[in-house]
Design a protein around this nucleic acid. Structure first.
Lengths: 189, 189
DNA sequence: CAAAATATGGAGATCATCTCCATTTGTCAA
DNA sequence: TTGACAAATGGAGATGATCTCCATATTTTG
């Protein structure tokens, strides 16, 4: 699948230009409101070129999203290496809320892409999911967290948080969701 | 806003035909994959008529959604009247998962509409949110549930469940989310 | 440096959405 | 009942976004 084909020099350049532009728009949250052809114009590229590099809007979103996910996964790994398992998990989840709060675009895009069952996104999210799964597994191992609920449930909760990003009291509610999840995860008895 | 305007007989009929067709498609989950104009053809109605009755796809979705929400709210009220507060809340939430599992279309539509921040949907969801808020408030009143988290957090979790409806292990994970929320809600100490 | 391979851009085809209005259908007063 | 007025209809075509195609330009290779 990842059969890296040698990319011509100009192609590389255009691709990067496209990505740079997309990243900008992505972060403002206007990603899905912008005519797709305009990405091309904005990036100083022809429409044909845009479509060759990214056949669909989702493909482009996915590419941008990848970077975001990488950042988050790094964070997860770093926390897992430096903190006790339970604390790492808690810190990571709290940090996710901060991150989403700071990146409107990420939240919106996540919500939209998930809603459309974009398989590309599902693919891109796998890394993030793995990171969460690892954090939870470590906490279970450490005996700090119950072992009878799937890490997928935590992902679902995170989705809920991302998907509801435009609710009036979002921040407080998001924090509350994390609180519920963390308290719910604590080994009962 | 609800200035009931007397609707002509044929208008009434067409509107009902449109709604019936939409309801059908809605429940199959194909609501957003179908050309909007085709609702008209399917319902035996001209495009113009469709657009006069429901100016946008979302307006139509909202109308169908209304019925779904009403059902759920009824359930909530009935439970609240017959069970202890904590049990009513738990039963309702568990039931939501059943309901979503049984109505693929509802889940998909919900997710899509929320992702698009459809204000119409936000409006339609208010009733559901009120029902959840009431259930939580009653449980708090009864001392069975902590009072430092907003009912909105529960809504968020429900969204997460609905939005992730196509995950492979959906059912189990959804149940786990509810478990986490319920355990998390239990008054600590 | 010439030929082959690769990539470009943007004009226009395609397709879903939505508008407009000449015609039909229903309502109501006489 | 009927005539006249209002309300509603349907579908042809305007609109506007998405995507394809290919003649031209750029890069790489021998």
């Amino acid at each position: 699948m990842t059969a890296d084909k040698p990319l011509r020099a100009d192609a590389q350049r255009k691709r990067e230009a496209l990505l740079a532009t997309a990243r900008e728009v992505f972060d403002t949250g206007g990603f899905f409101d912008l005519r797709f052809d305009d990405f091309a114009r904005l990036a100083g590229v022809g429409t044909g070129t845009l479509y060759r590099h990214f056949p669909t809007r989702e493909a482009l979103a996915e590419a941008v999203y990848h970077g975001e996910v990488a950042t988050l996964c790094d964070r997860a790994r770093r926390l897992q290496a430096t903190l006790p398992a339970a604390e790492a998990l808690a810190t990571f989840l709290r940090g996710m809320v901060d991150h989403i709060a700071a990146h409107e675009g990420l939240a919106r895009t996540l919500a939209t892409l998930w809603a459309d069952r974009s398989s590309a996104l599902a693919e891109g999210s796998r890394a993030l999911e793995q990171a969460v799964t690892d954090l939870v597994a470590a906490a279970v191992q450490a005996g700090a967290v119950r072992d009878d609920v799937d890490a997928g449930a935590v992902m679902m909760a995170l989705h809920g948080i991302g998907a509801a990003h435009d609710r009036p009291g979002w921040r407080a509610e998001a924090d509350d969701v994390i609180t519920l999840v963390l308290d719910g995860l604590r080994r009962p008895l």
